[in-house]
Design a protein around this nucleic acid. Structure first.
Length: 566
RNA sequence: GCCCACAUAGCUCAGUAGGUUAGAGCGCAUCCUUGGUAAGGAUGAGGUCAUCGGUUCAAGUCCGAUUGUGGGCUCCA
């Protein structure tokens, strides 16, 4: 598809040039889904239909894509007024470069292309956006037009329909609809309020996390949300992370709202002498942190300003490092699969421009992480320069409904904070040694994770996570007493149960329960009451017939215990 | 923060080309209905049209600023 999409971007660029004249061009590549082209020209939404019309003409003209080869000097002359193209040309280390020509439009391009413009049978320009030249905010902003194209109209319709479907899974719509959470402008962007049902979901996840951490030898901590600025100066955050920190001043004392949990855990580590026999020490905290994020980047629960991390810090010695990383990796992948996530992207992030510590130490840590990924046979990409200022890391990114990647689990090696805080343990020879730290989260932030989870399940959570697990739907008011009895039994068995006692028809109650994506509906009519049974309807399987109350409760408990996704 | 777009009832949206008391559906309240697997009916409450300023005899509608939201870009320990 790449060739096809890239060719469509040339068609779009030629249409834009026909309409707006001799404008400067940026780049116009194919992307994962579709293509874009950047123009140094003010183009607005209302221009898109005009451009589409012009593209249609070019397609109807069925122009041939011709390859033209020029030597560098000819190319430079040809691109005289295309300053952005000249920049690209300067980086090409070859005597000849290729151009592609369709109609009167000729563009520096290594190709390849499809044969003729007429092959593009269906296309749509999707959105218009600003994009800095070369992705650098110091450069001018160009106008980027995104589009998609196919060889048939059916494929295009299919694509557009899928996008529409995906939007219905958007956690920002489903979240408030299902009573999970809300973000109030009046309070501030990026600050989530958990409503009762969302809090149940959150609580289930927290309970599960705590149990899993205890099983793996972690000690749980709780640390304050604010602390003196000096702590953050010592950690280096004030230097390397300043623009994201919220500062608080009171009676001439300077405090910060904690943007990270690590210094807190370090305080506890430092509180007494540690022996090599104590290591590794694993401290875990559901730590709520606040970070200022630029207004344009906030996105529902997926990018917020206040969030709770399932954060842990492991203090160990260098010989334990590899094993600890392995354990953490296993832990993270295990947790993801327990929540039904099987598709994610893995990155190894290396040394950034701003960093602390020695180069050899960075190499050592990077190699340790890489070694674990390779030994576990995981597919990963290197993300150069994306490490934290204190160390390299493994990032695992989860995908949302529109396939955008969001960082979830991350494992970071840190040889630097132990230095800054002068951490030590006593070795078997009685001498002092410096421990190594691993920072890691296995779900990431609860907010982001739940945002992804909502989209992943499209709101249809497995039973164990469903805020309401069963809803009782009496067919007439005459069954209300029996329904209330059934409700009492379910609640006393620890099943999250609701009763729809409205004087509505059954169909209506089913529709509403279905929209709330409640896993099981218990239907009670005259028949059920007489036989002391209940009839069950599952949100996806439909009517699954009558059950004895005890039998059904046993089934529910099994399904909850197994954490099944049905 | 930058580019583009958007902002009307709790929610989803109509509002013609500026012209009296701004509409609908859902939801909510009250009443009627007691119906067997995805919407039963009636009545009613609810809006200083995001905010501020301007143009005009007249602004939800036109212009500007601000705030917020959306999609991108940049950023993201």
């Amino acid at each position: 598809m790449e060739e096809f999409w890239h060719s469509t971007s040339h068609i779009m660029a030629s249409a834009v040039c026909r309409i707006f004249g001799d404008i400067k061009l940026g780049i116009g590549p194919a992307i994962a889904e579709g293509f874009y082209y950047d123009f140094d020209c003010k183009i607005q939404d209302e221009d898109l239909p005009k451009i589409e019309d012009e593209m249609r003409k070019i397609i109807d003209e069925d122009q041939r894509f011709e390859k033209i080869v020029m030597n560098i000097d000819e190319a430079r002359k040809f691109l005289e007024r295309q300053t952005y193209k000249l920049e690209i040309l300067d980086e090409i280390d070859d005597e000849h470069v290729s151009f592609y020509k369709n109609g009167s439009f000729t563009d520096l391009c290594k190709g390849p292309h499809i044969e003729r413009t007429g092959q593009v049978k269906a296309f749509k320009l999707l959105k218009i956006a600003g994009a800095y030249w070369r992705g650098d905010e110091k450069n001018p902003m160009l106008t980027r037009i995104y589009g998609i194209s196919f060889e048939s109209k059916e494929e295009l319709d299919d694509y557009l329909k899928k996008q529409e479907e995906a939007k219905k899974r958007d956690h920002r719509i489903l979240g408030p609809q299902l009573g999970l959470f809300e973000i109030y402008d009046e309070v501030g962007g990026g600050l989530a309020f958990w409503h009762p049902k969302g809090n149940i979901l959150r609580d289930e996840i927290i309970w599960f996390l705590k149990k899993e951490h205890k099983n793996r030898g972690y000690f749980e901590l709780t640390t304050p949300h604010i602390g003196k600025i000096e702590l953050w100066e010592q950690s280096g955050h004030c230097d390397y992370y300043r623009e994201n920190i919220y500062f608080i001043e009171k009676e001439e004392e300077n405090y910060v709202l904690k943007p990270m949990n690590c210094p807190g855990h370090i305080m506890i580590y430092k509180s007494k002498m540690r022996s090599y026999k104590d290591l590794p020490i694993r401290y875990f905290e559901l730590g709520t942190v606040y970070r200022y994020e630029r207004s344009g980047v906030l996105h529902g629960l997926l990018r917020v300003r206040g969030f709770t991390q399932d954060d842990a810090h492991i203090f160990c010695n260098e010989s334990q490092l590899k094993n600890e990383i392995e354990e953490v990796c296993r832990f993270a992948f295990d947790m993801l699969s327990r929540f039904g996530f099987n598709e994610y992207e893995i990155y190894l992030s290396t040394k950034p421009e701003k960093y602390v510590g020695e180069d050899e130490i960075w190499d050592l840590a990077t190699d340790a992480l890489k070694g674990v990924l390779e030994e576990q046979g995981l597919n990963f990409s290197i993300d150069p320069g994306a490490g934290v200022f204190y160390g390299p890391k493994i990032d695992i990114k989860l995908l949302d409904a529109l396939n955008r990647a969001w960082q979830g689990p991350t494992i970071q090696v840190d040889f630097n904070l132990p230095d800054r805080f002068d951490l030590s343990y006593i070795g078997d020879d009685g001498r002092k040694y410096r421990p190594v730290m691993i920072h890691r989260v296995v779900l990431g932030s609860l907010e982001r994770f739940i945002g992804c989870l909502v989209e992943h399940y499209a709101g249809k959570f497995p039973l164990w996570l469903s805020p309401t697990q069963v809803i009782i739907l009496p067919i007439t008011d005459n069954q209300l007493n029996y329904a209330k009895n059934v409700e009492r039994i379910f609640i006393s068995e620890g099943i999250r149960t609701e009763l729809d006692s409205r004087s509505e028809k059954l169909q209506r109650k089913i529709k509403d329960a279905q929209e709330l994506k409640i896993p099981y509906m218990i239907i009670i009519g005259k028949k059920e009451e007489e036989q002391e049974k209940i009839s069950i309807r599952h949100r996806s399987k439909g009517d699954i017939g009558p059950y004895g109350i005890d039998d059904f409760i046993k089934n529910l408990k099994d399904e909850i215990r197994e954490k099944l996704s049905i």
